[in-house]
Design a protein around this nucleic acid. Sequence first.
RNA 1: GCCCUCGUAGCCCAAUGGCAGGAGGCGCCAGCCUAAGGAGCUGGACAGUGUGGGUUCAAAUCCCACCGAGGGCACCA
Length: 974
Amino acid sequence: MTIERTASAAGVGAADDTPPFRYTAAMANDIEAKWQDVWEETGTFNTPNPVGELSPTDGKPVADDKTYVLDMFPYPSGKGLHVGHPLGYIGTDVWGRFLRMTGRNVLHTVGFDSFGLPAEQYAIRTGTHPKVTTDENIARYRSQLRRLGFAHDQRRSVATTDPEFVRWTQWIFTQLFESWFDPQAEPAPGGGQTGKGRARPIADLIGEFSSGAREIPDGRPWAELSKADRAAVVDSYRLVYITEAPVNWCPGLGTVLSNEEVTADGRSEIGNFPVFRRSMRQWMMRITAYGDRLIDDLDRLDWPESVKSMQRNWIGRSYGAQVAFRLADDAHAGAGPIEVYTTRPDTLFGATYMVLAPEHPLVDTISAAEWPADVPESWTGGAATPIDAVAGYRLAASRKSDLDRQENKQKTGVFTGAYAVNPVNDNRIPVFIADYVLMGYGTGAIMAVPAHDARDYEFAGVFGLPIVDTVERPEGMPSDEFHGGEGPAINSANDEVSLNGMAIDEAKSTITRWLQDKGFGHPRKQYKLRDWLFSRQRYWGEPFPIVYDADGIAHSLPDTQLPLTLPPLVDFSPADLDPDDPNSEPVPPLGKATEWNTVTLDLGDGEQTYTRELNVMPQWAGSCWYELRYLDPTNSKSFCDPENERYWMGKDPSRPNDPGGVDLYVGGVEHAVLHLLYARFWHKALFDLGHVSSEEPFRRLFNQGYIQAYAYTDARGVYVPAEDVTEETPGEFRYQGQPVHREYGKMGKSLNNVVTPDDMCAAYGADVFRMYEMGMGPLHESRPWQTRDVVGSQRYLQRLWRTVIDEDTGAVRVSDDAPDVETLTLMHRTIDGVRTDYAAMGYNTAIAKLIVLTNHLTKSGVDPAREVVEALVLMTAPLAPHVCEELWNRLGHDESLAHGPFPQADAEFLLDETVEYPIQVKGKVRSRITVPADADAAAVEATALADEKIVELLAGAAPRKVVVVPGRMVSIVP
RNA sequence: GCCCUCGUAGCCCAAUGGCAGGAGGCGCCAGCCUAAGGAGCUGGACAGUGUGGGUUCAAAUCCCACCGAGGGCACCA
């Protein structure tokens, strides 16, 4: 085993002459266990709140200067942690520890995203209750995390499965259920949003309906509506609503999935089962109401540009026009018109045909009984009539999986036999159905402009449809080449309007205005984002706080009924469904809890019998607001006291247009759209309803990289234990003498290359492991794990140890003499650099600077000065907290260094008295001069030009140009 | 196909317009220490920045094209 080998190499059980007081893995383990106990017993990292149970016991006010640092909390899987998982946690821990040492009030903890499918599937297989599995896994995670020495406030470590947590998740759900989005409302006070629109209590809406201030969409008077009709009207406004919707039904998992949980090839992200599109009754969250704010407020966030661009792309806002095309023939009088959405209304004159999605509701109405005369064979799909052709095409399309659709790049479709009229030029254009038009986007119908849309161009090529240019080609572009670019409009005029000569933008607005004047269309804003499918037919999730009355009307449970906990079950399986049968019906596991799912309640109309909602929430629910619960985890009156929220997450008036939120949120980029979009949505709704002062949950986001690993396969293709592979000659790898093939990628059990933090702690100690992970490179970059490199970090901590402790006697060996000027100068420059690096999470460079200072002390050969050693210990503490606490303690300090002091750089030592300037001639360094640091540019230039070598090079000629970069260099152009 | 990252010694990385006089680490070589091995200590070798153009007094850094790696999206009208 590599671990044992390395451990002995590190001194554990090695030859007898290992000095007795060396910082070995065994020593490190003792020290680490000791300090972890001390921190826990004394509550070193308990962070005070302004108010509530966690406010200071001594009544002192909390520090103004605070930082809230957050990790994406883990799902506690049965596999435990590998060395890749804690990378981000160590990164935030170092940052938090550094800031705490500089005097800040730092909030840092970690909880558990503990609802989820794996525990439930395990329960289905074994009958073990998911709670049992989950609790075991959480306990294991807690002990693994504790072993790494995180400065977490354990009192705040909550799990989404805790009944108290579930209570507030359900409470927020009822808040959303009891709200609607009013697009005309003025923004909530204190918001930075520019447009109108915000969530309001549903009671306001009912008030407006009953007073007549607001009309019901279909114009009926409120007073005349039945109870059920009223409920239907109101329900259609709620932020959470039930609808019959096309969903991703996954019989293999017995549940529906959100779009985000389905892979591009039409299978489930979890389990890789087939997923089918079909219509079902489902709960939805109206996230689309927040489309504009979710996209606009990205500009106010300090997030990686890539994540912002992924969210923009996902929300997919576009501006265009909706245009109505009437049908050409009397046979269709009364049907239509066909409404299309286009982002290129300027090309309307080039629309030479139309396409409806196969599922479009108008298809049945317009399909002709017979083919018109002269229809090309290719348009008919070989069918006798358009009705047959359409039916055949639809059947074929429904059988095709999404994967088939993508693999079949050739455009397909059939003619419906119907014609429409292009409103700008009265041209009669054929209407097709084709699966390249999707029912779920826009109106499910398009006007096809083959001249300027690549997909339409391709389709027109297959079906021999006319192509009319309406944008002028660049000079020299062949007329048969596809042109999707810009240019002045051509061929675009009728008796009333001409776009010819206009640029695209002007042409768009001109034609849209004309369409609107004529009643043919209007501007339209469109999103790719759909409402969020919120129900799952599972067991291990939050039950909906919803009951249905005898009329089937949904009611939210009153707060006093929360939390609504899961009923005990024996059999957790949803139903034994054939994974390949799209027509199977979901049977939620909660349906089996017959006692639980009927309840007698008084919801204001006297005691009545209600039935419970049997769906549960998706796993995303808890992660939509957990950052708020960390702030006030013991609060039983609200999910979070407003004062605590304002203190930790409120807007910072010193930042322009600050949305507030967590000061630093670190996690993997895989959550770029799912979790981060849902959490933003909930937070904005909570803001609108006045429950939080911040408009965004995460002010700053940072994506850590991944730790990747090599994996090795032998001749049979079997993964061999990576830790036992040797590299005999560069690039040639062997396992038990046999050559093996190297791959690079994930760390995982199936790849036989897992290294765990427990292994590393045993072999080196947590501090060495932390140093190594932080020293490997910048936190945001992925890097390969290499156990053999870890020893470098151990050597550093051993040298640091030796600067304080005599390895033979165990005595503290620092000198109380003043350090020499050179050492002092290096120390202050190190302090300055390390402070900057820590603040910017540049840990790898901070470590390099600490090593330089340590090496300097080591080389001097004398007992190092206390002043320098103490600075070094304090500066290393965020990275290697246990050994530094120990050294700090042995240096005579009784107080933990967790709250500082952090060394201050003395500016006096940061500036040189003289500066050496390289002198470039024609871009090459030809000489060097040394001048006083305060010399001005003219003086530097004069000295440079007077330099012997330069005089020689210039040979008497005056230089054409001299560039002096203060403090850096001189560049001469002869 | 489109979008986003990223290419610097054998390997991980630093320098983001200003001396690659490489910050640091691993590995390698040598010396000291040792009975020896390991560890420790001291010293050393090794790249001219993926390729080709351009801007500039000056480019690893900015711009363009290409090559390679990783990630995201994928008929969104």
